[in-house]
């Protein structure tokens, strides 16, 4: 296709110019589209979609491999995980996952995937090299969020109907603690220092900040958007900067991302993004935050220096997960 070729040449030329000018190489953004079974590739320099890749059924959670050469995809309705080669832009391997994989975590060495099987109340541990399920760990009803501590020693899994964060010792592969949080917990995200994990509760409308040594809630962060009914505030995605200065919460049908002072837990402001915002991802140098907006079928780009939404980029239908790599 001449148009596609021209476009690609322009993109390459633009990228070359940027490199020549000594600007850090822009990132590439990958978005899973739950409804149309694709991954959209977005160029971080031009902030435009450049490619759509067909993958398995109902792709939701996505993760980069440690070498950032592959993308792991939870293909929920295909009941497996796909490995997308990012250079070849095609699925090159299938990993087992147990039924209905929704979301997962990768160990620091990049060897093991921990998968939440939403339908069967299990966390499945998958050895990537061997392509085998190592074990299954029983957890609460509708496991969803998967947060691995920075040292990889503890995995926090949330169960949406049990309303708990289950702390799993990854060496023993056993549940060692349970923290009761507010209704319908979704994400569990660790601070980079490993001192805390933050758990969003979609129906409870809060984020619980949990002390990772004592397994105690140290703060419940609540949200209030002027003119918006409390029922519409449904936190899902959470992102915390490496320096733990700022945290961000995607508030679902409130169509806003809350900006939180991660030291004082004060909500600083609300940024209007697309409709039904769910998942969040930083770019590699943490100067931007990307959000997936499931109803408006786009992603929003937030500039973190200005704390402003700078662009909406159309992607596929029902965008779910997002990651960014150099």
């Amino acid at each position: 296709m001449p148009n596609g070729l021209t476009y690609r040449l322009v993109v390459i030329a633009a990228a070359a110019l940027l490199c020549a000018a000594g600007i850090a190489k822009a990132d590439t953004i990958y978005v899973s589209n739950e409804k149309d079974n694709t991954i959209t590739v977005v160029d971080g320099a031009s902030l435009s979609p450049v490619k759509t890749i067909a993958v398995g059924q109902r792709p939701r959670g996505i993760l980069l491999s440690r070498d950032e050469k592959s993308l792991y995809i939870c293909a929920s309705d295909s009941d497996h995980i796909e490995v997308l080669d990012l250079a070849a832009e095609k699925v090159v391997r299938i990993l087992p996952s147990g039924r209905d994989p929704e979301y997962f975590a990768l160990d620091p060495a990049g060897k093991v995937l921990y998968v939440a099987n939403e339908d069967s109340n299990l966390v499945t541990v998958v050895d990537i090299d061997r392509g085998e399920v190592v074990t299954e760990i029983p957890v609460g009803v509708e496991p969803e969020g998967m947060g691995l501590s920075p040292d990889g020693k503890y995995l926090v899994n949330t169960s949406e109907t049990t309303n708990m964060a289950h702390v799993i010792d990854t060496a023993k592969r056993e549940v060692v603690a349970n923290v009761l949080v507010d209704s319908r917990p979704r994400r569990a995200v660790w601070t980079d220092d490993g001192a805390q994990f933050w758990v969003s509760a979609e129906i409870g409308g809060t984020i619980s900040v949990v002390d990772a040594a004592k397994y105690e809630i140290v703060k419940r962060i609540a949200f209030a958007v002027p003119g918006m009914p409390a029922e519409a505030i449904q936190p899902v995605g959470v992102a915390i900067t490496r320096d733990r200065k700022l945290a961000f919460a995607a508030l679902g049908p409130a169509n806003r991302v809350a900006v939180i002072n991660a030291q004082s837990y004060e909500v600083m402001r609300y940024l209007l993004v697309g409709q039904r915002v769910w998942n969040l991802a930083f770019n590699p140098d943490q100067t931007r935050l990307y959000t997936t907006n499931g109803v408006s079928n786009d992603i929003s780009v937030i500039d973190l220096a200005a704390l402003k939404v700078i662009k909406s980029i159309p992607v596929g239908q029902l965008p779910w997960g997002v990651v960014s790599r150099r």
Binding site: N121, S159, T161
Partner: peptide
């Protein structure tokens, strides 16, 4: 059944 799954942990 759902309550008992939660009940294991509580």
């Amino acid at each position: 059944a759902d309550n008992n799954t939660t009940g294991h942990f509580t």
